[in-house]
Design a protein around this nucleic acid. Structure first.
Lengths: 109, 109
DNA sequence: CGACATACATCGTATTACAATGTATTTATG
DNA sequence: CATAAATACATTGTAATACGATGTATGTCG
């Protein structure tokens, strides 16, 4: 895995996941590993600071849940988070299009 | 433009461009602006260190060309650069698939 | 002549991903 | 029952990054 390439996509991935349902940290790492067929394991040193960053930017809010299985800190996307997610999605598509066009040839367009 | 999201894609873009033809720095910024319909202008503080990085990693080689229009430093991809480009392309697709799958729903898969 | 475009380069700042490390609790497993 | 492994959260230090600001030349055009 090219860690530099992951930069910038981390927040997009996390927001995408919690946009669908509240999730807690450890659950997120497992889900990402599953969705990538084992190819990507987000390290905890990446995940937890990233979740704090989402909260600091008010893109997500957290709440503790004490179950019989132990304590879990759930993250929930905010309205601001949803609009940021949309922006990041468009940005990602823009980069993708740029890569695609760059690949397709320089002469035309 | 989300600059954090650009991280990691910079080298992919530069390698993609010089894989097709030798290019010099200033030309690359103009081409990227054109290919993005004006949406993305790579700053010089990003470009020139990035080109040096490609050279340091032996993904590209440079040569000076003194034309009547002035001096230009051209960059040329190496064999190592081509194999790295392929790797970066796959990596980018992997991230894209991960984002896509994360968007499509968590229940199945 | 003076503004702008072309062309290269470096420095400082803020930010980042991740390995390493640490603390608890819960769940197998021998 | 002990102990290893999985679950779950968190912080610190390191290396690397993108980019704005700044600098130097040269060429072009009104």
């Amino acid at each position: 895995m090219d860690k530099e390439m992951m930069k910038g996509s981390i927040d997009l991935l996390l927001l995408t996941l919690i946009a669908q349902q509240d999730m807690y940290g450890y659950e997120i790492t497992k889900k990402l590993k599953q969705l990538s067929d084992g190819a990507y394991e987000m390290s905890e040193g990446t995940l937890y600071p990233a979740l704090k960053r989402l909260e600091r930017n008010q893109w997500a809010a957290s709440y503790w849940s004490e179950t019989e299985a132990g304590r879990r800190k759930y993250y929930q996307i905010t309205d601001e988070g949803r609009s940021e997610l949309e922006k990041k999605h468009k940005n990602f598509d823009m980069i993708r299009n740029l890569v695609k066009r760059s690949t397709e040839g320089l002469g035309e367009i």
